[in-house]
Design a binder for these strands. Structure first.
Length: 466
RNA sequence: UCCCCGGUAGCUCAAUGGUAGAGCAUGCGGCUGUUAACCGCAGGGUUGAAGGUUCGAAUCCUUCCCGGGGAGCCA
């Protein structure tokens, strides 16, 4: 007897009249004393549940079927037929219902057939995948991840598995988590009293990666078009709806590309994956539009149909200075744009995503390519309404003398960057890349307000249960 | 890390110094091809923790814990 998914049954891939076996978890049970029970069966294959109609003639009707509660696991066999009731096109007329797993203590089962707050669901993260919202998020997350890989694959990019553990101390993108096997209660010391990391596992200090960029540049300068897509770690004490200590990031790196090509790649990628989402996950998006954010579908449709605005930083500062509204923080050329400034640009001034380019060198990283003006670098941020910075990228400095000058300016030791400098000594070419925050992308697509609700088990300061 | 808000039944919330309640969930009963059904009954509480003020504290004060929003940092 073939096993069918709920999605197969509901989406017309099983002919009416066919006998099917379905498996999953009970959402609700409604009894009719006319002699049947309606069981809403959910298996995660799509947003909707499948209605299983269980007649009282079943041998275990009174002993088991009539006692099913939310969360029970069952296997049901029966004919898939057009539904007599409203609310579903087809249903299963069960000839057999087996209870695979009961719910102990049903009055305390944490996932009730009612609305829960997202904050509560985080406290039961091992069960929240059974909720409508988290289930929909999970299917959207998968759809976006697959679309990202498809986008790059179709364009000849190679997926590079850059290391999670890095001994390189030059990534410079934030506070790092230390990786060590040393006994914290009994640390080896050098004669001058410092911790002796030569005794540690790697013979030197090691950390979790904060970015695969520097590593992926090495493969870019051989395979031309590459990207990373994996977990990234920041030990910042950030407590916001946009930050996680462990998050996933997509970082393409393109040889012979300049900043304009880089920005175009970011725009093409985002449009591609949102178009895929609109095509593939209409059921889940309809739910987000109904319960989470009524604008989310319209926003995605508008996103794929329009082009990004491009504004140089210097121009952005002029726009902000001329804005009618007052900002808490004043705008000055040479300073970083505050959240309120970014929101104004993308939400009010333009009303759609904005690419801000050519930032002052003093607020950007050492590897970003110096512009001819000597004051700005070829960097870009993509700002999206409601979420702020979703992409950060740049053209990389490919000229060794200019790179060395920047290292010196920032008091960085060139010895630590020996292999990165080698790339500029042996067949250097212009190249550019960006980082796309995966959770922020999902937040933007779904209207979910918090990155903690779009990753299965969020890690934030003081929180790593599960 | 800083500022603000919150923590009451399994969940969502009432009760603003005077006997801790409702809806949903759960159990039992009724009723109906039902639609997060409906009707009735029942069980369910150390009001986040500790201390303080008061005749009396869910309520006011102090400290701590936890959660959220915003800021900084960033993706």
């Amino acid at each position: 007897m073939p096993i069918h998914s709920v999605a197969d049954c509901l989406q017309g891939r099983v002919p009416a009249g066919e006998t099917v076996t379905v498996r999953g978890w009970v959402r609700t049970r409604r009894d009719s004393k006319a002699g049947l029970s309606f069981v809403q069966l959910h298996d995660g294959s799509c947003f909707a549940p499948l209605q299983v109609v269980a007649p009282k003639e079943l041998p275990n009707y009174a002993s088991e079927v009539a006692k099913l509660t939310a969360g029970c696991a069952i296997e049901a066999e029966g004919r898939l037929v057009p539904s007599e009731g409203k609310g579903q096109t087809v249903e299963v007329q069960a000839s057999r219902v087996n209870v695979v797993g009961w719910v102990d203590d049903p009055d305390h089962y944490p996932m009730q057939p009612k609305r829960h707050t997202l904050e509560y669901l985080r406290e039961v993260a091992h069960l929240r995948s059974r909720s409508n919202t988290i289930g929909a998020v999970t299917r959207v997350r998968h759809g976006l991840a697959m679309a990202i890989h498809r986008f790059f694959h179709e364009r000849g990019f190679f997926w590079i598995h850059t290391p999670i553990v890095t001994a390189s101390d030059c990534e410079g993108a934030g506070e790092m988590f230390r990786v060590s096997t040393l006994d914290l209660a009994n640390l080896p010391r050098t004669p001058d009293g410092k911790v002796d990391f030569t005794k540690d596992f790697f013979g030197r200090e090691a950390f979790l990666t904060v970015s695969g960029q520097l590593a992926v540049e090495t493969y870019c300068l051989a395979l031309s078009k590459v990207y990373t897509f994996g977990p990234t770690f920041r030990a910042e004490n950030s407590n916001t709806s946009r930050h996680l200590a462990e998050f996933w990031m997509i970082e393409p790196e393109i040889a012979f590309a300049d900043l304009a090509a880089d920005a175009q790649a970011a725009e093409d990628l985002l449009k591609y994956i949102f178009k895929a989402l609109l095509n593939e996950r209409g059921d889940d998006l309809a739910f987000f539009a109904e319960r989470i954010d009524k604008d989310c579908i319209a926003r995605l449709e508008k996103f794929v149909a329009s082009s990004f605005e491009r504004i140089p930083y210097t121009e952005a500062v002029r726009i902000l200075k001329g804005a009618k509204r007052k900002f808490e923080y004043p705008v000055e050329w040479g300073g970083d744009l505050q959240s309120e400034h970014e929101r104004y640009l993308t939400e009010e001034h333009v009303g759609r995503p904005v690419v801000v380019t050519d930032y002052p060198k003093q607020i950007k990283a050492f590897y970003m390519r110096m512009n001819d003006d000597g004051k700005t670098v070829a960097a870009m941020d993509v700002l999206a309404p409601g979420i702020g910075e979703i992409v950060g990228g740049s053209q990389r400095e490919e000229r060794l003398d200019v790179l060395d000058a920047r290292l010196q300016e920032l008091n960085l030791d060139p010895k630590h960057y020996w292999w990165y400098r080698d790339l500029r000594r042996y067949g250097t070419v212009p190249h550019a890349g960006f980082g796309l925050g995966f959770e922020r992308t999902i937040v933007y697509a779904t209207g979910m307000g918090n990155v903690r609700d779009v990753i299965p088990f969020p890690r934030t300061p003081g929180s790593a249960e599960f």
